[in-house]
């Protein structure tokens, strides 16, 4: 039997949903699992991990971990992984996860499967599904001669369960010694307090059909009612209406929310590449022949300026806001 190490992340003192998904998957696998967390959130999240059913909890609380430094994190975590005897490492395909785990995998002569959307186990071998060719195909992949199996899961893909059980000991680890060639100078906060597009459960996205930057206000209003994050097509990012962090698509973010509402977005293949994995897609477009309708679950042909405010009102009523 294998042993799973779940690398978790937290924000505002709480484990992220994506991490709870991983812990739930580890628990369901029937294999023993241990949990790890690093950074300023580690101390706060440790109690929740301790009672999650994990056999051990490992934290890296030293102030040096407050900011993500690839070299420091690689040294600390590859050491933990090796010593723990873990054969599988589960982590989120987050900004940190995607940057860090390929480096650790290289150090441990192992492979990493990134951006996975499904996970199961065949004995102690992880089997995943992951989008390739910009979501135009899905590969079912397993590990072969990889000493450690690194799996990075996309958020919102796995079910979560209430985590309870046990009270695992929490082991605190010091920062590894050694000179670092990377110096984190600054972390500039984003302007948005909302969930990142890659984690959001609902996304409202705007395209060139909105005519000008100021009209994104209309989408922000709709998003506020829905608790959604606002995204955009490349056309409006390139026009400078919104920042690149909001771009969905091949050269932007790949998202897979429960609900994706595309307003004035034509549905170019490069945009579809980033969002066609969404569970329910709503398209609002004045052109009945816009390609977005071919991918949509529900379509409204009409003028965004007329429909969006009415939609916002209807959602307010339905959600009692």
């Amino acid at each position: 039997m294998g042993k799973i190490l779940v690398f978790t992340e937290a924000a505002n003192g709480k484990l992220k949903r994506s991490s709870i998904e991983l812990l739930t998957a580890a628990k369901k696998s029937g294999q023993p699992f241990i949990a790890a967390i690093a950074g300023s959130q580690a101390a706060g999240a440790a109690p929740a991990l301790s009672s999650s059913g994990a056999a051990e909890v490992h934290t890296f609380e030293d102030g040096k971990f407050d900011q993500y430094n690839p070299e420091l994190y690689t040294a600390a975590l590859s050491d933990l992984i090796t010593k723990s005897g873990a054969t599988v490492v589960l982590a989120s395909a987050s900004a940190l996860g995607k940057d860090l785990f390929p480096r650790i995998a290289a150090r441990l002569k192992s492979a990493v499967l990134s951006d996975c959307t499904e996970l199961s186990f065949n004995g102690d071998k992880a089997v995943v599904k992951r989008p390739v060719y910009s979501g135009k195909a899905f590969a079912k992949v397993t590990f072969d001669q990889s000493p450690i199996q690194f799996v990075l899961m996309r958020a919102n893909q796995l079910p979560t369960e209430e985590l309870s059980g046990g009270s695992a000991a929490v082991t605190k680890h010091a920062a590894p010694a050694g000179d670092l060639k990377t110096l984190i100078k600054d972390v500039v906060k984003g302007t948005s307090e909302k969930l990142d597009l890659t984690e959001a459960n609902i996304i409202v996205s705007g395209g060139r059909g909105l005519k000008e930057a100021a009209n994104f206000k209309m989408l922000n209003d709709l998003a506020d009612v829905l608790g959604a994050t606002v995204g955009a097509s490349r056309a409006v990012v390139d026009a400078g209406w919104v920042s690149h962090g909001m771009q969905v698509g091949q050269t932007g973010k790949t998202v897979a929310p429960s609900l994706y509402i595309a307003v004035g977005v034509s549905g170019a293949i490069q945009h579809l590449a980033g969002m066609s994995g969404s569970k329910v897609i709503v398209a609002i477009n004045s052109d009945p022949n816009a390609p977005i309708f071919q991918k949509a679950t529900y379509g409204i042909v009409g003028d965004a300026f007329e429909i969006v405010p009415k939609l916002t009102e209807e959602f307010k009523k339905a959600l009692h806001k």
Partner: peptide, 10 residues
């Protein structure tokens, strides 16, 4: 995430 930026010197 969230439009944040990490500035690093390498």
């Amino acid at each position: 995430e969230g439009g944040a930026k990490e500035v690093a010197q390498l």
